[in-house]
Design a protein around this nucleic acid. Structure first.
Lengths: 355, 355
DNA sequence: GTGAAAGCGCTAACAT
DNA sequence: ATGTTAGCGCTTTCAC
């Protein structure tokens, strides 16, 4: 023990926590002893005294999913500088597993919790928060309950995708969407319709929906037959996610339909391989890293402030334009949409990436 | 506190840890009190007494990389049932960051450590292990030092890829590889050559190497010109990873070369989108989940056994055959390779996935 | 079967 | 400026 090697005891603690209060020579002596004995302080004992575990719990659906991986990196980026270590848990979309982990994290007395909850009922989390564990919801609306949250505006995302196609002059747009019971799917649909209305068009006329049971490549590919059968013929397709878009892309290739020549295509999520497809896929990106980083920041706020005002941060998705949507279909019509949109709101924050 | 609500103190502890030693009625009374007061035991205090933190540290290069994400899931799968929670840390390939995290994890008294070390010198980890923290290396050879490890046989992987093409009858095979300073690249190359020798062929004649500075899509695409210029003409190409393969695929498409008709193509890693390409890409898969799971198992062994024998587990990569390598070029020649290979070792554990 | 008491490693208040 | 002491919440003898 550093104490035996040195000469004091409680002073050693000061060397670690209030170095300035210890006299130079003493301090050095203690530090030497620490180095020599290979002393490493115990967080557990520290926690028992001080009440902070220097630990933050993160519960998400599946760490193997790059979406969550990147989000965690965002949180880690801000939290590690504050000396926190992350306890990361995959609930696997199981309410039971989630409960077990929440229990374990509470036993560990995490100083905060970031969670994408699978349980519909949030009252357990509200209670946890009331018990003094700062809690931030990830990609989930707190629905008026007293919780912080960080979400992405999926309505806006749907609007961006549809709006982009409208700007390019498309007036007959297919929309391959998943079940509306998934909140994200419903929201993106709402956004797409809104884009049509902004353009002075009726969604019922121009937005042709094809609903598939799951957001997979295969379902996307199957949807192509239906898309091509529509009359009058579609000139563009938007999809509820990139996997569907990839399937559509493959289906179109099989049918000899050129993208973007005969059909423009835009996905959603901007997954890693979207930029690698042929042609590279235009898509709507979610700020995954920022999502995590901002959640962590909210957490720190809630942990430091005495009386805390719960806050909800909503991120704007970002349109990433690539080759799959090509250039304007008819210049004149394109400008019409742009004009209708102008002045309504800050212009779309679309980023353009090389082909 | 449960104690006040109930009637005893140290007995409450027994209700939690040795329920059978407590009389029925008493036990029930305590449990009620626990439920009513919302008591949650403190791991920290527990740890202070018992010495176990119920925590395992995981240090990897980047959690946003799906390779690591999946590996962590493997570890989580076996560890969570034992009541452990994972402290996951991304070193970002920074030696400094790695050291900081290792320090923090040791302060937390993790019961074990899984790490993909960035620091070349492993003596810090050996010391840590000697100090009583069971440590398992992930995807890194312990080089004779006393540490457990879990790795994947990249030589074998290279052999699988090349062997597959040889079995199909290809005799002029391009190999787009990264810098040999990367251990994985060097190993895969060694394996590819070995496959040629097994087939009774000289690698110098049949294996045509193209080295690129980095394993990216763009470098793959650029390599195509060089590949197509080779005489006599190549009939197949293998790549050191899937990104390169994707680039090659794109380049070939641009040059009007059909895959697999005019050129067979096999990648490495079997990333998520390999199966989604057109045509779906044959590749060599690393058992990511199993890597993590097996590392965790090793950790548990090391933690439980008194005198521990350090073990190294080496995984066999797995050939995933998809459409990009098509069918045999010339049946006769194909069988020649197969015959040479037979009996040499347990046959390749290749899995076949739908087109 | 249950209670009482010591102590894990640390920090903060107090005494010197 | 340094040493002394109490106690964080728990487990674990050891009496009863």
């Amino acid at each position: 023990m550093a104490r035996i090697a040195g000469v004091s005891l409680g002073t050693a603690s000061n060397v670690l926590n209030n170095p300035e209060v210890v006299a130079g020579p003493t301090r050095r002596r203690v530090q030497e002893a620490i180095a020599k004995t290979g002393f490493v302080r115990s967080t557990a004992a520290h926690q028992l005294r001080v009440g902070r575990s220097l630990t933050v719990g993160v519960v998400l659906l599946d760490l193997a999913n790059p979406f969550f991986g990147e989000m965690v990196r965002g949180a880690e980026g801000v939290l590690r500088d504050k000396g926190y270590v992350l306890m990361v848990c995959s609930s696997d979309e199981s309410v039971d597993q989630e409960r077990r982990y929440l229990r374990a994290l509470e036993e560990h007395r995490v100083d905060g919790l970031l969670i994408t909850p699978v349980e519909r009922d949030l009252k357990g989390l509200v209670a946890l928060s009331a018990r003094g564990v700062p809690t931030v919801l990830l990609d989930r609306d707190p629905g008026g309950l007293g919780l912080c949250s960080v979400t992405v505006d999926d309505v806006r995302g749907g609007e961006l995708a549809a709006g982009h196609l409208l700007e390019l002059g498309h007036r007959r747009v297919g929309f391959v969407n998943g079940p509306l019971s998934i909140r994200q799917c419903a929201d993106r649909r709402t956004g797409a319709k809104r884009a049509f209305r902004w353009a002075g068009l009726r969604p019922e006329d121009g937005l042709v929906e094809v609903t598939v049971p799951a957001l997979t490549v295969d379902h996307g590919e199957e949807a192509v037959r239906e898309l091509l059968a529509k009359k009058p013929r579609l000139t563009a397709v938007m999809c509820a996610n990139d996997l569907l878009a990839l399937g559509v892309l493959r289906g179109l290739a099989g049918a000899g339909v050129a993208v973007p020549g005969d059909m423009a295509l835009v996905g959603y999520d901007d997954v890693a391989f979207a930029s690698m497809l042929s042609p590279p896929l235009s898509s709507v990106r979610q700020p995954k890293y920022e999502l995590g980083a901002s959640a962590a920041t909210l957490l720190l706020e809630e942990a430091s402030e005495g009386a805390h005002e719960h806050r909800s941060v909503r991120f704007e998705p970002e349109l990433v334009v690539r080759a799959s949507t090509g250039s304007a279909l008819r210049t004149v019509a394109g400008s019409r949409y742009r004009k209708a949109r102008a002045g309504a709101r800050p212009q779309s924050t679309g980023a353009v990436e090389g082909t």
